[in-house]
Simulated scan of single mutants.
Amino acid sequence: MIDFIQGRVAYHTPECVVVEAGGVGYRLHCSNPFQWEEGEAVRIFTHQVVREDAHTLYGFSDGSVRDCFRLLLEVSGIGPKVALAITGAGSPAALVEAVEREDLRFLTQLPGIGKKTAQRLILELKDKLKKVGWVQTLPTGGPAAAVTPGRSASSEVIEALTALGYNEDEASLAVDEARRGFGEKEPSLDDWIRRALQISMKR
Rank of each mutant, 00 (worst) to 15 (best):
D3R: 10
V9S: 06
A10C: 02
A10G: 03
A10E: 11
Y11P: 03
H12I: 08
P14N: 05
E15M: 08
C16Q: 14
C16W: 05
C16I: 05
V17W: 04
V19P: 06
E20G: 03
V24K: 05
R27M: 12
R27Y: 02
N32R: 13
N32I: 12
N32Y: 09
F34V: 11
Q35H: 06
E37D: 12
E38P: 13
E38F: 01
G39S: 04
V42S: 01
R43P: 02
I44Q: 00
I44W: 00
Q48N: 01
V50S: 00
R51Q: 12
E52C: 10
D53E: 13
A54M: 09
A54R: 09
L57C: 08
F60P: 07
F60Y: 08
D62L: 05
G63N: 02
C68L: 13
C68E: 05
C68P: 04
R70L: 09
L72E: 05
L73H: 10
E74R: 15
V75E: 07
G79A: 05
K81A: 13
L84E: 06
L84I: 01
A85F: 07
T87A: 06
S91F: 02
A94M: 14
A94N: 05
L95S: 09
L95P: 08
V99N: 04
V99H: 02
R101A: 15
L104E: 10
G112T: 07
G112I: 12
I113F: 07
K115E: 12
K115S: 09
K115L: 11
T117S: 13
A118H: 08
R120Q: 10
L123T: 07
E124H: 08
E124I: 06
L125F: 02
D127K: 10
K128E: 09
K128W: 04
K130E: 13
V132C: 14
V132D: 07
G133A: 08
W134G: 03
W134I: 01
T137P: 10
A144R: 12
V147W: 01
T148F: 07
S152D: 11
S152W: 12
S155L: 13
A160L: 11
T162W: 01
D169H: 09
A171I: 13
S172I: 04
L173G: 01
A174P: 14
V175L: 06
D176W: 02
G181D: 09
G181M: 06
K185C: 00
E186Y: 04
E186I: 15
E186Q: 15
L189W: 02
D191K: 10
R195M: 12
R195Y: 00
R195T: 15
R195D: 07
A196G: 08
A196V: 12
A196Y: 06
I199A: 00
M201R: 14
K202W: 03
R203G: 04
